[in-house]
């Protein structure tokens, strides 16, 4: 198993993706939705009714974090849908699979090529949210808090990457069964729906008053992380075990 081979595969994938304007700007567009919503909600609260707004901001900050995570999961599934099925559709899979690449090197390469841009989007959207909300708080002279806050950041930086791995793994499993990228996209839509459920769990902690019990938030964040960890490990193991050149080619 040579790691540099996987990195090579990922690099070339990214290079090709970035040559396509639609992909580049599409990803940035979807990635921008999360921070925009985050900043928009904070702006509404702070400028709309500063007294109540500032009061419930910490709670909001705790439960808005999953929203960022949900929104960057979508590009991950789309990039991953392209990773193997795209090569099938472009007829490049046959020469690629004829090289001495091992299954693991190939799959890790495809994982990296989806993981790296998805993580970049996630980190980017966190940074943009933090800066945007800081400017809003600063403009009204409010006390500075992190939005997303520490529990939210914990969730995004733990469950975010594991969920991306799980989604890529499922897309690899699917790619043995479909021929066309659009079929893979359709499947990816359904999968995202299922896979964001864990991310929504921490949101359930919000009470009718708009406040949250921070201990409960932490508990759910940790549970979510554990669930995604199990998901990632099991789907990835399955993807590696099930991967089969023969079915990839003959389907």
């Amino acid at each position: 198993m040579a790691l540099y081979k996987s990195i090579l595969v990922a690099k070339v994938d990214l290079k090709m993706a970035m040559k396509v304007r639609m992909v580049k700007f599409g990803l940035i567009g979807i990635g921008a939705l999360g921070p925009l919503m985050m900043i928009g909600i904070v702006a509404l609260l702070v400028y709309g009714d500063p007294v109540i707004g500032l009061l419930i901001l910490p709670s909001i900050s705790a439960i808005l974090a999953p929203m960022l995570g949900m929104i960057v999961i979508i590009p991950a599934s789309m990039i991953a849908a392209n990773a193997l099925v795209g090569e099938k559709e472009m007829n490049t899979l046959e020469p690629l699979l004829s090289t001495p690449l091992t299954d693991r090197e190939l799959l890790l390469g495809k994982l990296l090529s989806s993981f790296v841009p998805s993580m970049a989007l996630l980190l980017g959207s966190i940074v943009v949210s933090e800066i945007g909300t800081f400017i809003i708080l600063w403009s009204v002279g409010a006390e500075f808090i992190l939005i997303p806050g520490i529990p939210g950041l914990f969730l995004l930086l733990t469950a975010g990457p594991t969920l991306i791995v799980a989604i890529v793994a499922v897309m690899i499993l699917i790619s043995g069964k479909v021929k066309r990228v659009y079929e893979a996209y359709q499947m990816s839509g359904a999968i995202v729906m299922v896979f964001i459920i864990p991310m929504m769990l921490p949101m359930m902690t919000m009470e009718a008053t708009g406040t949250v019990d921070i201990n409960l938030v932490w508990m759910w964040n940790i549970i979510t992380f554990l669930i995604t960890l199990v998901l990632a490990a099991s789907t990835w193991a399955l993807a590696v075990r099930r991967f089969n050149r023969d079915t990839m080619i003959s389907m």
Partner: peptide, 10 residues
């Protein structure tokens, strides 16, 4: 159909 098996954008 080898001529269709190249990475077109590269």
């Amino acid at each position: 159909e080898g001529n269709h098996t190249l990475y077109q954008t590269l």
